[in-house]
Computed example of a mutant assay.
Amino acid sequence: MIPAFIITGYLGSGKTTLLLNTAKEHFSGKRVAVIVNELGEVGVDGRILKNAYSEVLELPEGCICCTMHTEFEKALTELKEKYNPELLLVETSGSAEPFPVMISLQNLGCVIEAVICLIDTKNFHLYSQDDTARHQIGSSNVLVLNKTDLVDEDTLKQVEDIVVSLWEKYLLRNLFTNEPVFKSFKLYKTSFGKLPDEVFSGVFALQEKLYHLNDKDHNHNHVQQVVYFDKPLDYEEFLNMVNNLPTNIIRLKGILKLKDLPEALVVNYSFGNLDTSYTLPHYEGRSFLVLIRSFN
Rank of each mutant, 00 (worst) to 15 (best):
Y53L: 10
Y53M: 10
Y53V: 08
S54C: 14
V56H: 03
V56T: 04
E58V: 09
P60K: 08
E61T: 07
G62H: 01
G62F: 05
C65S: 01
C66W: 06
T67S: 15
M68D: 06
H69V: 10
H69K: 15
T70E: 14
E73R: 01
E73L: 00
K74V: 04
K74Q: 03
A75S: 02
L76Q: 04
L76G: 04
E78W: 05
E78V: 07
E81D: 15
E81M: 13
K82G: 08
Y83L: 09
Y83H: 11
N84K: 13
P85V: 09
P85T: 09
L87S: 10
L87C: 14
L87Y: 14
L87E: 14
L88Q: 02
E91I: 05
T92M: 02
S93P: 05
S93Y: 09
G94V: 03
S95F: 15
A96M: 02
P98Y: 00
P98S: 02
F99S: 05
V101Y: 01
V101I: 11
M102L: 08
M102G: 13
M102Y: 02
L105D: 09
Q106D: 08
Q106L: 11
L108D: 01
L108N: 06
C110E: 07
C110K: 06
V111T: 15
V111R: 15
I112S: 00
E113Y: 08
V115E: 01
I116S: 06
C117I: 08
C117V: 12
T121L: 05
K122E: 14
K122C: 06
N123F: 08
N123Q: 12
N123M: 08
N123H: 15
N123W: 09
H125Y: 11
L126T: 13
L126V: 11
Y127F: 10
Q129Y: 11
Q129N: 12
T132W: 03
R134Y: 02
Q136I: 03
I137L: 07
I137R: 02
G138R: 04
G138Q: 03
S139Q: 04
S140L: 01
V142Y: 01
V142P: 00
L143W: 06
V144W: 09
K147V: 00
K147Y: 01
T148H: 04
D149R: 03
L150A: 12
E153Y: 04
D154C: 07
D154H: 10
L156G: 02
L156M: 07
K157V: 12
K157P: 06
K157F: 14
Q158D: 15
V159P: 08
V159T: 14
E160L: 10
D161T: 14
D161L: 11
V163G: 08
V164W: 00
S165T: 13
W167G: 04
W167V: 06
E168Y: 11
E168G: 12
Y170E: 15
Y170W: 14
L171I: 12
L171T: 10
L172C: 15
R173L: 14
L175P: 12
L175E: 14
N178M: 12
N178H: 13
P180M: 11
P180C: 13
V181Q: 09
V181L: 11
V181W: 11
K183Q: 14
